[in-house]
Amino acid sequence: MDETGKELVLALYDYQEKSPREVTMKKGDILTLLNSTNKDWWKVEVKITVNGKTYERQGFVPAAYVKKL
């Protein structure tokens, strides 16, 4: 869990989004888990830094590609 009590997951593999509802992740990324009720796709939040500014983006990743921490 992070400092706000949200559950975290670890990306076990790289994943490139294939639709606007998904998010890209790299092996080793730590993501915030938002919803894991679907056994195949989990909703996560990723933080992306571009030119020194951090953005948060929500989307789905394959559940088999992440592990709860």
Rank of each mutant, 00 (worst) to 15 (best):
R21D: 11
G52P: 02
I30V: 09
K47H: 12
D2T: 12
K43W: 11
K27H: 06
E3H: 10
E45M: 14
Q16D: 14
L34G: 01
K47Q: 13
Q16M: 13
V44A: 01
E22F: 05
L31T: 01
D14N: 08
P62E: 01
G59D: 00
N38S: 11
K27S: 07
K27M: 07
V44D: 00
Y65T: 07
Q58P: 05
D2I: 14
L12N: 03
I30S: 02
V50K: 10
T4I: 11
K26F: 09
K18E: 10
A11W: 02
K26D: 04
L31R: 00
R57T: 06
I48Y: 15
I48W: 11
Y13D: 08
N51D: 11
K53V: 12
I48K: 12
K26W: 09
L69V: 14
E3W: 05
D14F: 03
L33I: 04
Y13A: 09
D2N: 12
R21S: 15
E7W: 12
D40P: 02
R57S: 05
A63T: 05
A64K: 14
G5F: 12
N38I: 05
N38L: 11
R57V: 07
P62W: 02
K47W: 09
M25L: 11
L8A: 06
V46K: 15
L8S: 08
M1K: 13
K39P: 15
K27E: 08
E3G: 15
L31E: 00
L34H: 05
T49A: 11
K53Q: 14
N38G: 10
T32D: 05
P62M: 02
T24M: 03
L31P: 01
E45F: 05
F60W: 14
D29A: 05
V44L: 03
F60K: 02
D29M: 10
G28Y: 04
E7G: 11
G5C: 11
K26I: 08
Y55V: 14
I48L: 15
Y65R: 05
Y13Q: 10
K68M: 10
E3I: 13
T54G: 08
M25T: 03
Y13N: 09
L8Q: 13
D40I: 14
D14S: 08
L31F: 08
T49Q: 11
S36F: 06
A63D: 01
T32M: 10
L12G: 01
K68D: 04
V66K: 00
T54H: 11
S36P: 05
V66Q: 00
R57P: 01
M1E: 14
N51A: 13
Q16L: 12
G59M: 04
L33F: 03
W41L: 03
L8R: 11
T37P: 03
T4A: 11
V23S: 02
T54C: 10
D14R: 02
Y15K: 00
T4P: 10
S36W: 08
V23I: 15
S36A: 11
P20D: 12
K39W: 06
K39L: 10
S19V: 04
L34Q: 03
Q58V: 10
A64N: 15
V23D: 00
E56H: 15
W41G: 00
V46M: 09
L10M: 15
T49P: 06
L31D: 00
W41F: 07
G59P: 01
E7S: 12
T24K: 03
N35T: 05
E56K: 15
V9D: 00
T37N: 14
L69T: 06
G28L: 02
R57H: 07
R57Q: 07
W41E: 04
L10W: 07
V9N: 00
D29Y: 04
E45R: 09
L34M: 07
S19I: 04
K26S: 10
K27W: 03
D2W: 07
K53T: 15
L10G: 02
Q58H: 09
M1D: 13
G5L: 12
L33D: 00
K27L: 04
E3L: 10
F60R: 03
S19K: 09
V44Y: 00
E17F: 05
G28F: 04
V23Q: 02
S19E: 07
T54S: 11
S19C: 07
Q58K: 09
N38T: 06
V44W: 00
V61G: 00
